[in-house]
Design a protein around this nucleic acid. Structure first.
Length: 857
RNA sequence: GCCCCUGUGGCGGAAUUGGUAGACGCGCUGGACUCAAAAUCCAGUUCUCGCAAGGGAGUGGGAGUUCGACUCUCCCCGGGGGCACCA
C-alpha cells in the first residue's frame, strides 16, 4: 500500500469541502447556535506560528461543535487598517490599499492550506468602505448620545509613529508598537466616553464565568475603582484668588486631621493660572514635564514641590490653613489632580513632608499600639486602627471615621462621598492616513459640524503622497477642503482617522450579517451574539477586549444591539516559543548558522566560535528564532502542524516549538494511515452486524474504545486538547496490538472508526481520507460525533491498591463493587501484608471501594 | 512595592479534584529487519542500593492536618506576568 500522500490528500479534501460548501452557515436553524471566533489577523502578508496555533484551536472547537449538532458560525476577516501599510508605502512606494489587498490575498491562500472550517462567504476587511462607513455612522450616534466628545488635553504622543496613543497603548512609558518613549502633548482630540460605563464594565466582569481569572483581574485593575470623597478647600493668600477654592480627592478622608499640606499637579488649571505671571513656577512646571512619568524617571525622581504661597483652609480646624504646593508626583488625570497630604499615613506624603519640613501628625493608632506613643519613622502607617489627635472622630475605627467625616463634609457643603476610577476616556484620534476618516467638518463659523448621514461614507482619497512626514490627508491638495454642511461657507475636513481598535471593537457583530447594507441585521445579531467562544492572545487582555466590551454597551445604548458582553467564553492561548542562539558578542544567530562539533559543543558553522544556546523565547524576527509555517505545512502538511500545536502543551500555556515534536506528529499520522490501510486483521464492511461473542482481548479493546469516546468528548468540552490527543494515541496503541480472536476484527473496525472520528477535528484531512477508506460515502465533516456505549464504560473487574501504613504493598483484582468485607479479607491475605502484620491484627483497615485499601499496623 | 500565575523524570506534560505519581509524546539505551542506511517493529527508560527477588527515596524547600498529600493549611525560595508616585 502506498505511503500517505499529504499534499494530494490535503488539497483534495480542501477542495471537496469548498465545493460542497460544507462550512457555509445559515442564520437560524432548529439546532442550537454556537459562535466560535479567533481574533482576526492583521494582514502582514504571511501567517506565523501564533496564527497557526490560534486558528487550529478555533478550528478544533468549530469542527467538534459542528459534529455535536450545533449550528456553528466560524468566520474569518482582516483587521486591515494600520501603520505597517503606511510604513510599507513609505519604504516601497506602494499604496497602502494595494499592499493590504495583496497581503490579504496571500494570507487567505496560506490559511486555506490549513484546512480551516471557515465560512469564507462572510469574510470582511475593515479597510473596505462598506465596513468602515458604519463606524462613521456609529460615531455620529455616539456624539448624539454623549458618548463621543472633543476636548483639548494632554495626550501621549508617539514621536516614532507621529501620532497620539491611547493610555492602554502606552506600556512602561513607551509606544506599544514603536517602543519609542512617549511624549506629552496638548492637543485637541476625539474621545469615546468609556468612563460612562466604568461601573458596568467592572460589574460585568463577574458575569464572565468562562473567562480566565487573570484577564478578569487585569481588567478590574485597569478600571481601578476606589471609594473616597471629594472635598473642597477654600483658598486664601492670593490676592486675585481669594474667592477660589480647591477640590481634592482622597480615599482617606478620615486622616484629614493629620493633613499638613495640599498639592496640585503641574498641569492643573490652577497651576497654569498661577504660572501665567510667575516665571519661577513656569520653570518648575517645565522641569516636571521634562522628567515625564516613565518608570525609569519615577524610580529615581525625588519628590519635589513648589510653594505657591496660597493657603488652603482646613474644613474642621478653626483658623488653620495648609500650604499649597505644586508637586511633581501629583497626576492631573487621576481624581481631581489635587490632594491633601497626610504624611503620617501615606508614604509619598511622608517623603514630601520630610523634604520640606512639614508637620507629621499621626491620626491613626494601630490596634496593638498605645495611643499616646504612636510615632512615625521611615514608613508611613497605612493600616487600620483607631483615630487619635482627631477631635470629634477620636477613638473611632478608620471605617467609621471615614463615614463620619464624609457626613460632616456633606452637611457643610464642602464635599461628598465619591467613587473614583482609574479608567480614562478612550482617545481615538490618530494622525494617520490608513484608517477610517473621522466624519467631521471644522467650520470657521459653525465650529465642529458632523458630516450629515446622507454624505457618508467619507472615503479615503486614493491619490496620496507619503513624501512628506506627517499625515498625507492634511497634505492632500483638495480632499480636506469642503463646504460647511451647515452654512455652506468654506470649511475643512477633520484629517485625523480612528484608532484601529475602533474597527476591531465590533467586527464580531458584523460577522452576523457581513453583507448587509445596514451595520447589523438585528435578527441575525440577536441570534448569533454573543460569541460563545473567543480565542486569542493574552496581549489583548485589556486593550481590545475592554474596548469591545465598551463598544457593545455603546451600540446597545444607540439601539443597534442587545448584547452587553460580546464574548461569553474566552480562551487565551500561550505564545509559540523556540530556542535562541547567540554568538560570543551576544548577537542572535539563526539555528542553521550553528553546528555541533566533535565534542558535542554548539559552535558557529562558519567561524567555529562558541555559541550559547539561549532559553526558548517567543518567536520573533529580531531573535532569529522564527519557524515559517508555510515550510512546515509544505513538507509535513497541515495536519502535522495542527497535531503538534495541540498535543504538546495545554492551549493557555506557552508552547515550545521543536523539530522532534513535529517529527513525532508526522510519525503518528503515518501509523494511523498504516493501521487503516494495512490492517493486521481483515476489516469487515461497515454494515457487518455485531458478532455475538468477543474474546477477552476484543472485549477489552471495545471497552477502551468507548471509554476513549467518552473521555475525549469531555476533554474537548474543556479544551484539554493535549489530553484528548494522548487518549486517542492510547487507543491507537491498543488497536495496533490486537491479535486474531473472536470478534477482534469487528472490534478493530469499531476502534478505527472511533479513532478517526475523534481525531477528525484536529487532523481533518487525514481523518477524512481514512473515513473514506473505511468504506463510508458520507463526508466525515458531515458525520455526527460518536456516542459512547454506556454499558461498556464500567469495568467488571477493578484493580485495588493495597497499602500498609500508606505505602503500596501490592494490588488485588476484584469484581467491581465487591463487598467491603471480601475486599478487606483479600487484602489481608497478600503475603507482603501478612509479613508486615507479623500475625498481629491490624490496628485499622481503611477500605475505599473499588480504589484502595490501607492497612494500618 | 502591590496583585496574579507557576514549580512533577533528561525534556513537553498526565494524575478521575485527598486514594497505585510519571498517562501520552519527545529523547535516550539495547535488539530485530537490512550489504548498509533511512523507515518500521520489539524491549527498556524517575533516582538510588541489589546479580536477582526486593528495599529505600521522590512532585522547589521546611513544617502541619490526615489511615493516606503533587492535591488542603502556614512559612520560605525560584521562574513568569500584570499594575505602579492612582492620593
Amino acid at each position: 500500500m502506498a505511503r500517505y500522500n499529504v499534499k494530494e490528500t490535503e488539497a483534495k479534501w480542501q477542495s471537496t469541502w469548498e465545493k460542497r460548501q460544507c462550512f457555509a452557515v445559515r442564520d437560524f436553524a432548529d439546532k442550537p447556535k454556537y459562535y466560535v471566533l479567533e481574533m482576526f489577523p492583521y494582514p502582514s502578508g504571511r501567517i506565523h506560528m501564533g496564527h497557526v496555533r490560534n486558528y487550529t484551536l478555533g478550528d478544533v472547537v468549530a469542527r467538534y461543535k459542528r459534529a455535536r449538532g450545533f449550528n456553528v458560525l466560524h468566520p474569518m476577516g482582516w483587521d486591515a487598517f494600520g501603520l505597517p501599510a503606511e510604513n510599507a508605502a513609505i519604504a516601497n512606494k506602494v499604496h497602502p490599499a494595494k499592499w493590504t489587498r495583496e497581503n490579504i490575498a496571500a494570507m487567505r491562500a496560506q490559511l486555506k492550506t490549513m484546512g480551516l472550517s471557515y465560512d469564507w462567504e462572510r469574510e470582511i476587511a475593515t479597510c473596505d468602505p462598506d465596513y468602515y462607513r458604519h463606524e462613521q455612522k456609529f460615531f455620529l450616534d455616539f456624539i448624539k448620545h454623549g458618548l463621543a466628545y472633543r476636548k483639548e488635553s494632554w495626550v501621549n504622543w508617539d514621536p516614532a509613529e507621529q501620532t497620539v496613543l491611547a493610555n492602554e497603548q502606552v506600556i512602561d512609558g513607551r509606544g506599544w508598537r514603536s517602543g519609542a518613549p512617549v511624549e506629552k502633548r496638548r492637543l485637541s482630540q476625539w474621545f469615546l466616553k468609556i468612563t460612562a460605563f466604568a461601573e458596568e464594565l467592572l460589574d460585568g466582569i463577574d458575569t464572565l464565568e468562562r473567562w480566565p481569572e487573570r484577564v478578569r483581574l487585569m481588567q478590574a485593575n485597569w478600571i481601578g475603582r476606589s471609594e473616597g470623597a471629594h472635598m473642597t478647600f477654600a483658598l486664601t493668600g492670593g490676592a486675585d484668588l481669594a474667592s477660589a477654592s480647591l477640590q481634592v480627592y482622597s480615599t482617606r478622608p478620615d486622616t484629614i486631621f493629620g493633613a499638613s499640606f495640599c498639592a496640585i499637579a503641574a498641569n492643573h488649571p490652577l497651576t497654569e493660572t498661577l504660572a501665567a505671571h510667575n516665571p519661577e513656577l513656569q520653570a518648575f512646571v517645565a522641569e516636571c514635564n521634562r522628567l515625564g512619568t516613565s518608570e525609569a524617571a519615577l524610580e529615581t525622581a525625588e519628590k519635589i514641590g513648589f510653594d505657591t504661597g496660597l493657603r488652603a483652609v482646613h474644613p474642621f480646624i478653626e483658623g488653620h490653613t495648609l500650604p499649597v504646593y505644586v508637586a511633581n508626583f501629583i497626576l492631573m488625570d487621576y481624581g481631581t489632580g489635587a490632594i491633601f497630604g497626610c504624611p503620617a499615613h501615606d508614604q509619598r506624603d511622608l517623603e514630601f513632608a520630610r523634604k520640606y519640613g512639614l508637620d507629621i501628625t499621626p491620626v491613626v493608632a494601630p490596634p496593638e499600639a498605645d495611643a499616646g506613643a504612636v510615632t512615625i519613622g521611615e514608613q508611613a502607617y497605612t493600616g487600620g486602627g483607631r483615630m487619635i489627635n482627631s477631635d470629634f472622630i477620636d477613638g473611632m475605627p478608620v471605617e467609621d471615621a471615614k463615614s463620619e467625616i464624609i457626613a460632616r463634609l456633606e452637611q457643610q457643603g464642602l464635599g461628598a462621598r465619591t467613587v473614583n476610577y482609574r479608567l480614562r476616556d478612550w482617545g481615538v484620534s490618530r494622525q494617520r492616513y490608513w484608517g477610517c476618516p473621522i466624519p467631521i467638518i471644522h467650520c470657521p463659523a459653525c465650529g465642529i459640524v458632523p458630516v450629515p448621514e446622507k454624505d457618508l461614507p467619507v472615503t479615503l482619497p486614493e491619490d496620496v503622497s507619503f513624501d512628506k512626514p506627517g499625515n498625507p490627508l492634511s497634505h492632500h491638495p483638495t480632499w480636506k477642503h469642503v463646504d460647511c454642511p451647515a452654512c455652506g461657507k468654506k470649511a475643512e475636513r477633520e484629517t485625523d482617522t480612528f484608532d484601529t481598535f475602533f474597527e476591531s471593537s465590533w467586527y464580531f457583530a458584523r460577522f452576523c450579517s457581513p453583507l448587509a447594507d445596514e451595520p447589523f441585521i438585528r435578527e441575525a445579531a440577536d441570534y448569533w451574539m454573543p460569541v460563545d467562544q473567543y480565542i486569542g492572545g493574552i496581549e489583548h487582555a485589556v486593550l481590545h477586549l475592554l474596548y469591545s466590551r465598551f463598544f457593545s454597551r455603546a451600540l446597545k445604548r444607540c439601539g443597534y444591539l442587545k448584547t452587553e458582553e460580546p464574548f461569553a467564553g474566552l480562551l487565551t492561548q500561550g505564545m509559540v516559543c523556540h530556542e535562541t542562539y547567540r554568538d560570543e558578542g551576544g548577537r542572535w544567530l539563526y539555528p542553521e548558522e550553528t553546528v555541533q562539533d566533535e565534542s558535542g559543543n554548539i559552535v558557529h558553522a562558519k567561524t567555529g566560535r562558541p555559541v550559547t544556546l539561549g532559553r526558548s523565547e517567543k518567536m520573533s524576527k529580531s531573535k532569529f528564532n522564527v519557524v515559517d509555517p508555510a515550510k512546515i505545512i509544505g513538507s509535513y502538511g497541515a495536519d502535522t502542524a495542527r497535531l503538534f500545536m495541540l498535543s504538546d502543551s495545554p492551549p493557555d500555556r506557552d508552547l515550545d516549538w521543536t523539530d522532534a515534536g513535529i517529527e513525532g506528529a508526522w510519525r503518528y499520522i503515518n501509523r494511523l494511515w498504516r493501521l487503516v490501510t494495512e490492517p493486521a486483521l481483515a476489516l469487515p464492511d461497515p454494515e457487518t452486524p455485531k458478532p455475538a461473542e468477543f474474546s477477552p482481548a476484543a472485549d477489552a479493546v471495545r471497552r477502551l474504545t468507548h471509554k476513549t469516546i467518552a473521555a475525549v468528548s469531555e476533554d474537548l468540552d474543556r479544551f484539554h486538547f493535549n489530553r484528548a490527543v494522548a487518549r486517542i494515541r492510547e487507543l491507537t496503541n491498543a488497536l495496533e496490538g490486537l491479535k486474531a480472536g473472536a470478534g477482534t476484527d469487528w472490534a478493530l473496525r469499531e476502534g478505527l472508526e472511533a479513532a478517526t472520528c475523534l481525531i477528525g477535528p484536529m487532523m481533518p484531512h487525514v481523518a477524512e481520507e481514512l473515513w473514506q477508506r473505511l468504506g463510508f460515502t458520507a463526508l466525515l465533516a458531515d458525520t455526527p460525533w460518536p456516542e459512547a456505549d454506556q454499558s461498556l464504560l464500567a469495568d467488571e473487574n477493578v484493580t485495588i491498591a493495597v497499602q500498609v501504613n500508606g505505602k503500596l504493598r501490592g494490588t488485588i483484582e476484584l469484581a467491581k463493587d465487591a463487598a467491603q468485607e471480601d475486599a478487606k479479607a483479600a487484602a489481608l491475605q497478600l503475603p507482603r501484608v501478612r509479613e508486615a502484620l507479623e500475625n498481629k491484627p491490624p490496628r485499622k483497615v481503611i477500605v475505599v471501594p473499588n480504589r484502595i485499601i490501607n492497612v494500618v499496623v
